[in-house]
Simulated scan of single mutants.
Amino acid sequence: MTATTASSRRAALPARSILVPFCIILAVVLAGLVIRATPAIGTWDLAVIRAIESARTPFLDAVALADGVLFSPVAALVIVGAISAGLWLRRGPGAAIPFAALGLLPWLGSSVVKDIVQRPRPLSAGLPHHLLTDTGYSFPSGHTSLAVALGLALLLTFGAGRLRTPLIVFAVAAPLVTAFSRVYLGVHNPTDVLASLVYATAAVLLVDALLRLVRRWWSSRAVG
């Protein structure tokens, strides 16, 4: 491999790392528009929610409601803010700011996707046993997006040592539990939370790639 070829390949990697997650996010948005315009999908979603509701237990009620609080917007700001503050004190802003960006930007982006797709919440009239009634648009799930973003942010920031295995478990389990709980509570459709898992993962990868580009630019500027 020539030096020119190796240099070209290294230069192409950042572009690909940005383009691929961006295209995935765009595909999720387009899928949301198709889902909103397809009544049959809404009918299927409602049937799945009813089936999940039929398996309700006090334990699952408690888990779902607790999860809803843990990954709520207020809790998100508190958790990410506390961890970012600790990172700032121990490692400086170079670690704190990227963690905050990874944890919050994908979640904030989910609100933008919601405003584009504008899919209504599941109809409460069709869910007589739902536990919560939420407002706003439904696609994708902000709670699920936050769970994905927080789990991956923790893994990317602290996952190089002994914490790697438990952080991988958390990064997988937290989004899945949250996705289930949002459907279980009757505030999101199954397709909403499935889309959230895909969207938020791509959004974290996109933010991470952009952060790496910023670091590379900053390093080259400092050297220059």
Rank of each mutant, 00 (worst) to 15 (best):
G92I: 05
T135G: 04
R164W: 01
F59R: 09
D67M: 02
A76F: 00
R182V: 05
V78T: 06
G86K: 08
L30Q: 11
A47C: 13
V63H: 13
V20L: 10
V117I: 14
S84M: 06
P128F: 15
A203S: 10
I79G: 03
A222L: 12
W44G: 06
W44Y: 05
L89G: 01
L60A: 14
A174V: 08
L185V: 10
L176A: 10
E53Q: 15
I18L: 09
P166S: 06
I25D: 04
V172R: 09
W44A: 12
A153E: 02
S219C: 11
A222S: 11
L197M: 09
R221S: 07
L65P: 02
H143L: 02
R212T: 11
T157K: 11
S181V: 02
A37G: 14
V34S: 11
T57F: 13
L167E: 07
I49L: 14
Y199H: 09
A96R: 15
A160G: 12
L206Q: 12
L197S: 09
P93M: 08
A64L: 00
G136S: 06
P14N: 01
M1Y: 10
P122M: 10
V198R: 04
L60C: 02
S141K: 06
A101E: 03
L33K: 12
F99K: 03
H143S: 00
L60F: 15
L87Q: 09
G32T: 15
G94I: 05
A202F: 03
G94P: 04
G142W: 07
V177Q: 01
R36P: 01
A95K: 07
L163E: 04
V69Q: 00
I52R: 08
R91P: 00
T157Q: 08
G92E: 12
T191C: 04
Y199K: 03
L167F: 06
W218M: 15
T165C: 11
A64H: 03
A125P: 01
A95I: 01
L87G: 04
L150F: 07
S111K: 14
